[in-house]
Design a protein around this nucleic acid. Sequence first.
DNA 1: GCTTGACCTTCCCACTATGGGAAGCCCCAC
DNA 2: GTGGGGCTTCCCATAGTGGGAAGGTCAAGC
Lengths: 160, 160
Amino acid sequence: MNIGQASAASGVSAKMLRYYEEIGLLPKAARTEAGYRVYSGTDVNTLRFIRRARDLGLSIERIKLLVGLWRDRERSSADVKRVAQGHVTELDAKILELTAMRDTLQELADACHGDHRPDCPILHDLEGGAQAKAPTAKMTKHVSARGRGGKSGAVPCHTA
Amino acid sequence: MNIGQASAASGVSAKMLRYYEEIGLLPKAARTEAGYRVYSGTDVNTLRFIRRARDLGLSIERIKLLVGLWRDRERSSADVKRVAQGHVTELDAKILELTAMRDTLQELADACHGDHRPDCPILHDLEGGAQAKAPTAKMTKHVSARGRGGKSGAVPCHTA
DNA sequence: GCTTGACCTTCCCACTATGGGAAGCCCCAC
DNA sequence: GTGGGGCTTCCCATAGTGGGAAGGTCAAGC
C-alpha cells in the first residue's frame, strides 16, 4: 500500500501521514526502491486509531502515550484512563472558559438595541467596562480568561 | 509614554503592541528621534479596549471591526451587535464541539475499570470503535467534529 | 565623563496541527 | 514513448503569543 491508499483507508491525509512520521508519532515507513513509502494493514489500523483519537480532540502528545499503551499488552487500564481523564479535565476547563465568554457577550448583545443609533452597551463595556463597573454587578463576572501568559495546559485547537 | 509604560498601563505586552501595529490593528506609533515608539493616553484607551475584547475571545479581525465602529460616531449599534453575535455563534459551535468530545470521552473513561488489568473500553473504542458499533447506540453519537478540512469559521485559539 | 543596567529596536524561532503549492522523479496504461 | 496521476521533498501560511539575540539609548550614580 502506498501513502495515497493508506490515507484513503484510514481517513488521515497523506500530508499528515508524513507529518506524523516526522514527529515520531508513527515509525518510519518502509520504502520502495524508488523511495515511495509502503504501508501495511497494521499501519492502517494504527492510523485509524490516531484519527479517532484526534476526533476526540486529544493532542498528539497524548495520542503518542495512548498508542504506546495500546501496543503494550502489559499496560494497566489505569494508565489509559489517566490519559483520557487528563484530556477531559482540559476540555472542561476550555468549555468553562468559552462559556464564560459566551455568556458575557450574549448579555451585552442582549442589552444592545441593535438599531441605527450609535449607543451600544457592548462598546461601552469594552471601553471602560470591568473596573469602573462594580456597582452594576452581574456584568462584572467577566472571568479573566485565557490564563494570560501561562503555559496552562489548554485544549489544542485543531478546529481551525 | 514609551512602549513599556503603555504596556503596563493597558495590560497588553510590548510584544503584542508591536505585533498589533504590524498587522494594522493599531496605527503606526509616533517615534522619538532615537526611534522609540511614543504612546498617548488615547492610545492606552484603545489598547485597553482591545485587551478586553481579546479577553472575550474575539479574533483580531473582529476587533478591527469593533475598533473601527467604536471610533465612528455615525455607527449604528446594529453593526456592533452583529459582530458580537457572530462571535457568540462561533463560541456556541466550539462549545458544542468540545462538549461532544468531552461527553464521549467521559463515558469511555467511566466504563474503564482503571486498574492493573489491560482491558480498556477506551482503547477498544479508539481501535475499532465507531463503525462496528451501531448496535450499542448511545456511544455512537461521536459527532464527526472538527469539520475536517473545512475553513469553517472556528473560534480562534488564544488560550494556548 | 564614563560605566552600568534597564529599556528600546529589529529580526528570527517556536508553538499546534493542518493545508497549499512548487519542482522534480516515478509508474502504469495506452 | 508519452501523458497523467501519484509520489517525493521543501517552503509557506494559518492565529496569536512568547522567547531570545544583537545592538542602540537613556538615565542615574560615581
